[in-house]
Design a protein around this nucleic acid. Structure first.
Length: 424
RNA sequence: GGAGAAAUACCCAAGCCCGGCUGAAGGGAUCGGUCUUGAAAACCGACAGGGCGUGCGAGCGCCGCGGGGGUUCGAAUCCCUCUUUCUCCGCCA
């Protein structure tokens, strides 16, 4: 949620900032409603104050055995005036709230406007791998090596799914465990979270109300519970409605979870295999911090994600996203994109984002500052990493002429010493 | 799944039956002070928060006793509902 004071004090600035995200807004109605709200509150509180005073007198009169009919008459007059106003106030506040919940976060000032086309590559690790033989794509490799079973997955679940089988499962699991160990080394706290979340959790994360159709709902039309689209959605809710002690911050967490996504739109056919599915695995990093540590925390998460990628020895790059390519709840996002030789394209394996106080405002996530006053935290998240796109990139980037695939050195201990996956 | 009990401030806990003087007793913790070489103990004092409105400000007002709603002139106290926790029974990985 955008700080309302900023909108009230400088609606033009907010308007321009949101335009960079490709969102057109008009604050005229909002500002009017805000004024209307204050007027109603003043009227209601005025009447309530009078009524409270009179009611108190009723008590006193009764104790002294004095006649109360005069008081009741006065109260009666106040009563009628108040109910209508209270209803209008409720309506007004609901409209204001609904409006605010649908406004995306302000992008950082240093970001370019526009969408994907304006993303900037700011870092590249290694060169594109060169092959002196005819390469295969990851589907071919995975199928030939018996790592992934697409057909049987389709049989039991339908499209957009796959089965990690045998060595393939071991490889996916090795990646997850490698990441988990690395995060432990950095003293992040490991969390295993519910995959089924309530509506309020989706609001706090910024997933709802705008993107209700992108998740899987469990309770039919009632929209009560949904499957998390990323562990971030659960992690951000860890401290919802809490006031943390200043010295507890920063709080650094990580979680492993499958991510369930409906991905309503249609995608290019080149996104075959495991590039986009209804379910994929991810280890997610998350921080609750004081606002003053925002940049530092962002860099830490980015460096951690880069470190993991570099240790895997894969060719990847880092893109600073343009305002329009950043998701709803975020002010700033850098993506790590791994190279897939078969389609000569870079695909996101990590998104490192700063939500600043946007999620904290939605979920009332605060800390007590030095003055003893509650203040909103900043929340940041970063994938560390999404594994389901790494397997394809490992297969494609590390393939050999004989159809075998070299396992990244750091994963070998997690593969019981297996260094190369050979054709069966 | 069934039956019962409970949810009060940082923690423990009274009040709820019998609605008003409870904007919430008491204790602990915490903070400040006295005493002390220092500390502890003892004693004295402070300690309801969060939100909203208003004011330059001290302040004033509204809401607030798990969440929501209702009854009433007035509700922590009565009624409805939801959530969570505990106990017992059943079922089960």
């Amino acid at each position: 949620m955008i700080n309302q004071d900023i909108i009230i004090n400088n609606p033009e600035m907010v308007k321009k900032a949101l335009e960079k995200k490709g969102v057109e807004v008009n604050f005229d109605g909002f500002l009017d409603l805000r004024e209307q709200r204050v007027k109603l509150i003043q009227e209601i509180e005025d009447i309530r104050a009078k009524r409270n005073k009179l009611s108190k007198q009723v008590g006193e009169f009764k104790r002294k055995k004095k006649d109360t009919t005069v008081l009741f008459k006065e109260i009666e007059e106040l009563k009628g005036a108040i109910t209508n106003q209270e209803e209008s106030l409720q309506d007004t506040e609901k409209i204001i709230n609904d409006f605010l919940l649908k406004l995306p976060n302000l992008p950082d000032e240093d970001l370019l406007g526009g969408g994907k086309e304006n993303n900037q590559v700011i870092y590249t690790h290694l060169d594109k791998p060169k092959f002196d033989f005819k390469t295969k794509d990851h589907m071919e490799l995975a199928t030939e090596l018996g790592l992934i079973d697409y057909e049987r997955a389709a049989k039991m679940s339908g499209k957009g799914t796959w089965i990690y089988s045998g060595i393939g499962a071991k490889l996916e699991w090795a990646l997850l465990n490698f990441f988990i160990d690395e995060h432990h080394k950095d003293n992040y706290q490991f969390m295993m979270l519910p995959h089924i979340l309530d509506y309020e959790s989706g609001i706090t994360a910024g997933q709802f109300p705008k993107f209700e159709d992108d998740v899987f709902w469990l309770d039919g039309d009632e929209r009560q519970k949904f499957l998390l689209p990323t562990a971030e959605t659960a992690l951000v809710n860890l401290h919802r409605n809490e006031i943390l002690d200043e010295n507890e911050l920063p709080k650094k967490y990580f979680a492993y979870s499958p991510c369930y996504r409906k991905e309503a739109g249609s995608y290019r056919s080149q996104e075959r295999g495991m590039i986009r599915g209804y379910q994929f695995n991810k280890v997610e990093m998350f921080q609750f911090i004081k606002p003053e540590n925002s940049e530092e925390a962002f860099n830490e998460l980015l460096e951690k994600a880069k470190g993991l990628m570099s240790k895997l020895g894969l060719h990847y790059r880092v893109a600073k996203l343009a305002a329009g390519d950043i998701s709803f709840a975020m002010s700033r996002t850098f993506d790590l994109e791994v190279y897939l030789p078969s389609i000569d394209i870079y695909k996101e394996v990590s998104s490192v984002s700063n939500s600043r106080d946007f999620q904290a405002r939605r979920g009332l996530i605060r800390f007590r500052n030095k003055e003893g006053k509650p203040e909103y935290c900043h929340t940041l998240n970063g994938s560390g990493l999404a594994t389901s796109r790494l397997v394809p990139s490992i297969l494609e980037q590390n393939q050999n002429k004989d159809g075998s695939v070299k396992i990244p050195d750091v994963l070998v201990p997690y593969m019981k010493g297996l260094k190369v996956i050979n054709p069966r």
